[in-house]
Simulated assay, not measured.
Amino acid sequence: MRQIFFDTETTGLEADKGDRIIEIGCVEMINRQLTGNNLHLYINPERASHEDALRVHGLTEEFLADKPKFAEIVDQLLEFLAGAELVIHNAPFDIGFINAELKRLRRGVLTDHVGGVRDTLLMARDLFPGKANSLDALCRRLEVDNSKRTLHGALLDAELLADVYIRLTRGQDALLMDEHGEGAHGDAQASIEAVDLSRFQLPVLTADAAEMEAHAKLLAELDKAAGGACKWRQLEPVQPVA
Score class of each variant (00 low, 15 high):
residue 28 E to G: 09
residue 67 K to I: 06
residue 30 I to H: 10
residue 71 A to L: 08
residue 35 T to C: 12
residue 125 R to A: 08
residue 15 A to F: 00
residue 123 M to S: 14
residue 109 V to R: 06
residue 127 L to G: 12
residue 74 V to R: 02
residue 121 L to D: 04
residue 41 L to N: 10
residue 72 E to T: 07
residue 122 L to M: 08
residue 83 G to W: 08
residue 106 R to I: 06
residue 105 L to D: 09
residue 116 G to W: 02
residue 62 E to I: 15
residue 75 D to K: 08
residue 85 E to Q: 14
residue 81 L to K: 03
residue 70 F to V: 04
residue 41 L to F: 09
residue 114 V to C: 08
residue 98 I to E: 04
residue 41 L to I: 14
residue 106 R to F: 02
residue 97 F to M: 04
residue 111 T to C: 02
residue 54 L to R: 11
residue 69 K to Y: 08
residue 8 T to R: 05
residue 111 T to D: 02
residue 68 P to I: 05
residue 27 V to K: 11
residue 120 T to S: 07
residue 56 V to W: 11
residue 75 D to N: 06
residue 124 A to I: 09
residue 88 I to M: 03
residue 92 P to F: 01
residue 48 A to D: 13
residue 126 D to F: 11
residue 103 K to F: 09
residue 91 A to L: 03
residue 63 F to Q: 14
residue 108 G to M: 05
residue 64 L to G: 09
residue 11 T to Y: 02
residue 25 G to C: 07
residue 64 L to T: 12
residue 48 A to K: 14
residue 29 M to A: 13
residue 70 F to M: 04
residue 70 F to S: 03
residue 94 D to C: 02
residue 110 L to W: 01
residue 47 R to V: 01
residue 59 L to M: 12
residue 123 M to Q: 14
residue 88 I to E: 05
residue 26 C to A: 12
residue 88 I to Y: 00
residue 86 L to W: 06
residue 78 L to N: 00
residue 34 L to V: 13
residue 111 T to A: 02
residue 105 L to H: 05
residue 70 F to A: 02
residue 13 L to W: 07
residue 42 Y to G: 11
residue 14 E to K: 15
residue 37 N to Y: 15
residue 127 L to E: 14
residue 121 L to W: 05
residue 85 E to G: 06
residue 90 N to K: 06
residue 28 E to F: 09
residue 28 E to R: 12
residue 102 L to A: 03
residue 31 N to D: 15
residue 14 E to Q: 15
residue 61 E to C: 08
residue 63 F to L: 14
residue 46 E to P: 05
residue 115 G to M: 00
residue 74 V to L: 01
residue 93 F to V: 07
residue 126 D to Y: 12
residue 20 R to M: 04
residue 30 I to F: 10
residue 94 D to L: 00
residue 9 E to N: 11
residue 63 F to D: 12
residue 65 A to Q: 15
residue 12 G to M: 10
residue 98 I to M: 09
residue 122 L to E: 06
residue 90 N to E: 09
residue 76 Q to M: 04
residue 13 L to H: 12
residue 60 T to R: 08
residue 106 R to D: 12
residue 48 A to I: 08
residue 14 E to R: 15
residue 22 I to N: 07
residue 123 M to T: 14
residue 71 A to G: 13
residue 108 G to I: 01
residue 90 N to L: 06
residue 82 A to M: 07
residue 117 V to L: 01
residue 48 A to R: 14
residue 119 D to Y: 00
residue 84 A to E: 01
residue 78 L to Q: 00
residue 29 M to Q: 13
residue 31 N to T: 12
residue 48 A to L: 10
residue 92 P to D: 03
residue 27 V to M: 07
residue 25 G to K: 05
residue 51 E to R: 15
residue 65 A to V: 13
residue 33 Q to T: 14
residue 29 M to N: 12
residue 88 I to W: 01
residue 43 I to A: 04
residue 46 E to N: 12
